[in-house]
Design a protein around this nucleic acid. Structure first.
Length: 471
DNA sequence: ACCGGAAAGT
DNA sequence: ACTTTCCGGT
């Protein structure tokens, strides 16, 4: 089954870089549609490369959130070929495979920019994010946990622990390259978001932050809301972003219950789930950079591997809900910069970051097409096409329909889970937060019967609460 | 360079 | 299901 190509020799025993924080959850390898299939998929591979500093000359994040540039198409193709034992792989073929992702909304092409594609992170995650597992995601676990574990059936310490297997110990991480055939056992297919780079836990150093489950943009750029932002200079207390200190594993603050730290900064529904102390912004030991101070990481000096947080925080309003609903596809695309579950991270114009001026230009350079920066260029604009100025990003009107529609789509797959959001209260105030509020996703684990009404009530209440807070 | 159909391979 | 391979078309 395995070819003994160089692949394994080339990439396999990945260094510390991949060990703890970079492993993708097992489910990431197993598209729900193809149980058992753990063949690495191209997008996984791309992500891998993107995360590895040594390949930044070949492929790197650049431009918009989730946008990356293949600086050396031939090389990427070669690597892919090696990985898949396809000696005759070339960029033409690889790009065909990438194109194949368009329909799946995993990727789309950034028009006007050569060799530039953009991840639809929410899709990337959700595509392989079994709704049921969702219930066990740190998000919900956290909720349940801090709420007293009322909702999820499986919120026992053990369960939680299983989500953060590598928190305490530096344990065996399953990396993309090192995902042993020896899956973690029964929970092998469960989410392990802690290991999912985008989910805020341990992303060593993206030159450019993929916007996945990152922070929920909430505050202005100058006040980065997340106590833990892996993409912030301070987040990685490594001298050099690029390379992790030899033998060093991610500092605990890389994945100290990312959720926790994140939650503390999340809009009400989430933040309130944390114990007072944490919600306050500080997370045990991990000095939240809440106040704008990024002195994360146990007092380590700030790094610089990352470009300063630009402040392109997109207020991705409803994304959370969408994410949960698994119905993000169109939405996300229609919402520039709020890729992912809507938690767009601070963008970081890369290039400058790691000083990867790189060979890119060799191919004529990537033309920075101002117009192409919009995510709206997506191929399938079934939904975005109708974007009106009226409906600014925080509007949920459109969103509602999208969400509900998406839900339907999913219904066929996983069963209906979330109530239509159409009935949600409209954003009362211009404050972005408000728009997030109503969409607090009910834990998927909730009985369908409960979910809807409960969720709505909660949403409303929370929205109210928020209003008060803000007033 | 990029697109997407078609067919074949795994 | 996910490519890989080909390929005509833009």
């Amino acid at each position: 089954m395995d070819c003994n190509c160089v692949s394994d020799l080339l990439l396999p025993p990945v260094p510390a870089l991949w060990t703890p924080g970079f492993a993708f959850p097992d489910w990431a390898y197993k598209p729900e549609s193809s149980p058992g299939s753990r063949q690495i998929q191209l997008w996984h591979f791309i992500l891998e490369l993107l995360q590895k500093e040594e390949y930044q000359g070949v492929i790197a994040w650049q431009g918009d959130y989730g946008e990356f540039v293949i600086k050396d198409p031939d090389e990427v193709a070669r690597l892919w070929g090696i990985r898949k034992c396809k000696p005759h792989m070339n960029y033409d073929k690889l790009s065909r495979a990438l194109r194949y992702y368009y329909n799946k909304r995993i990727l789309h092409k950034t028009k006007g920019k050569r060799f530039t594609y953009k991840f639809n992170f929410s899709k990337v995650v959700l595509v392989n994010y079994p709704i049921l597992d969702m219930a066990n995601s740190p998000f919900f676990l956290a909720q349940n946990h801090f709420n007293g574990g009322s909702a999820a059936p499986d919120c026992s310490p053990e369960a939680i622990q299983s989500l953060f297997p590598r928190l305490p110990d530096t344990g065996r991480g399953t990396s993309l390259f090192d995902r042993g055939s020896t899956a973690p056992g029964p929970d092998g297919d469960k989410l392990r978001l802690d290991t999912f780079p985008f989910l805020g836990s341990g992303a060593p150093c993206y030159s450019k932050p993929p916007s996945l489950l990152g922070p929920y943009p909430r505050n202005p750029p100058f006040d980065y809301p997340w106590s833990f932002n892996p993409y912030l200079p301070g987040a990685f207390s490594l001298n050099n972003c690029p390379k992790l200190p030899p033998g060093s594993l991610y500092p605990s603050q890389f994945y100290p219950s990312p959720l926790q730290s994140s939650l503390s900064q999340l809009p009400h529904p989430f933040s309130s789930l944390l114990p007072p102390g944490e919600a306050a912004g500080g997370e045990r030991g991990a000095p939240g950079q809440t106040g704008g101070t990024n002195s994360t990481a146990g007092g380590q000096p700030a790094r610089l591997c990352l470009p300063p947080y630009p402040g392109s925080l997109s207020m991705g309003r409803t994304d959370i809900a969408n994410g949960v609903t698994l119905g993000e596809r169109e939405r996300v695309e229609a919402n520039p910069s709020s890729t992912g579950l809507g938690l767009s991270l601070g963008a970081v114009s890369l290039g400058a970051g790691t000083g990867q001026q790189s060979p890119t230009e060799r191919r004529g350079g990537v033309k920075q097409d101002p117009e192409s920066d919009s995510d709206l260029e997506i191929t399938d604009l079934s939904d975005c096409s109708s974007d009106n100025e009226n409906e600014h990003d925080f509007g949920i009107g459109k969103e509602s329909s999208l969400v509900s529609r998406s839900s339907l789509v999913l219904d066929g797959k996983k069963g209906s889970l979330l109530p239509p959001i159409a009935s949600l209260p409209p954003p009362v105030s211009p404050h972005p937060l408000k728009s997030l509020m109503p969409l607090t996703p009910p834990p998927p684990s909730l009985p369908p019967s409960l979910s809807p009404s409960m969720a709505l009530h909660d949403r409303h209440r929370e929205a109210e609460t928020l209003k008060m807070i803000h007033s």
